[in-house]
Structures are given as C-alpha cells and as structure tokens.
C-alpha cells in the first residue's frame, strides 16, 4: 500500500539515508521510541561553538521514520543549538513534500529524538531545560494485558 503514497523525496531519503550510524565521540545522544511499537530512534550530536557540527542517527522503523530522521539530520547539521531547538515537525515533513496521514505517527519520533539529545546535552552542562525533556508517553510506553499502547 505504501509505495505510491510516499513522495519522491521520502523514497529518496529512505533509499539513501544521510548521516547514518553511531558516533563514538558524541557530545550527546537522544534515544526515543520502543521497538515493541515498531519504531525506535537514536540520534547523536557533536557540538562545536554552540552549533551542531555533526549528527548521526540509527532508526528501527518504517520508511517514514527513516526518511524523516534523515531529513532532520540534513536540516539541523550546521545550525545553532537555538535554531535546532526551534525545529518543528512541520519543517521536516514539508521538506519531504508531506507524508501519508497514516504515517504521521511514525514520523514524530525524529523531532522528539533531537529534543532529547539537546536536553541531555544541556543536562551534562548543569542546565535544566524542562521544555526539551522527554515526554512520558513517548519515553515510557504503557504496558498492559492488551499489549503496549503505542500511539
């Protein structure tokens, strides 16, 4: 069902994802999502002079999750921390020429992962930024007899 509903840009980023991998000397790492729910993302950043000098990601998830994260890394690389903090989901998705409605859920993690990476970066430096803190619903998926709640 999915192929025709994805834009060319989504397919292009999905098949040639940018900035993939682990970063051994990362200044901060943001991890978000849960493999139980079918999507999990890890975003590593290297900061120089208050700018995101380098960024790497790894994603377990569908084409939408992978393409969104790839696009996000392209957008924020070289940006100041303040600019990165202000990044919105809309900015990423509009750069991908949109997503099928059913796939919006899978694309939210990317921006959330970046926020958590920034939160952890500031925290290491003794700065509390509750506005960037992980949302509980994303960080800890609720488990019940019915299985996890993944929305």
């Amino acid at each position: 069902m999915a192929r025709l509903e994805y834009s060319k840009k989504v397919l292009e980023h999905f098949t040639n994802p940018r900035n993939v991998g682990e970063m051994k000397d990362a200044d901060s790492v943001g991890t978000v999502g849960n493999p139980v729910c079918g999507d999990m993302m890890e975003l590593s950043i290297k900061v120089t002079d208050d700018r995101i000098a380098d960024i790497r990601f790894r994603t377990f998830g569908c084409a939408s999750a992978i393409a969104t994260t790839s696009m996000l890394t392209e957008i924020v690389k070289g940006k100041t921390l303040k600019e990165a903090e202000e990044l919105k989901w809309d900015d990423v998705v509009s750069n991908l020429d949109g997503l099928p409605p059913v796939k919006v859920h899978c694309s939210l993690l990317a921006v959330e992962g970046l926020k958590i990476a920034l939160y952890n970066y500031y925290k290491k430096r003794g700065i509390d930024r509750p506005d960037l803190a992980p949302k509980e619903t994303e960080a800890e998926h609720v488990h019940s007899d019915e299985g996890p709640s993944c929305v």
Binding site: A2, R3, G38, F60, C62, A65
Partner: peptide, 30 residues
Amino acid sequence: QYIEGESMLLLLDLNGISVASGSACAQKNL
C-alpha cells in the same frame, strides 16, 4: 531480527518484488 517489515517490503517493492508484512507499519491500523 532488528529490522522493520514495511522498510523491507518497500525495498523489495523497489526491486520489483511484492510480499506482505506482519508489521504494524504496513497495516492501516498500526
């Protein structure tokens, strides 16, 4: 192991192969 069905399905599709997936992301109801 370690990877997600819709991603595989889509890459197979781009290689001219049609299969089905048990993944939530390939279902309309997630």
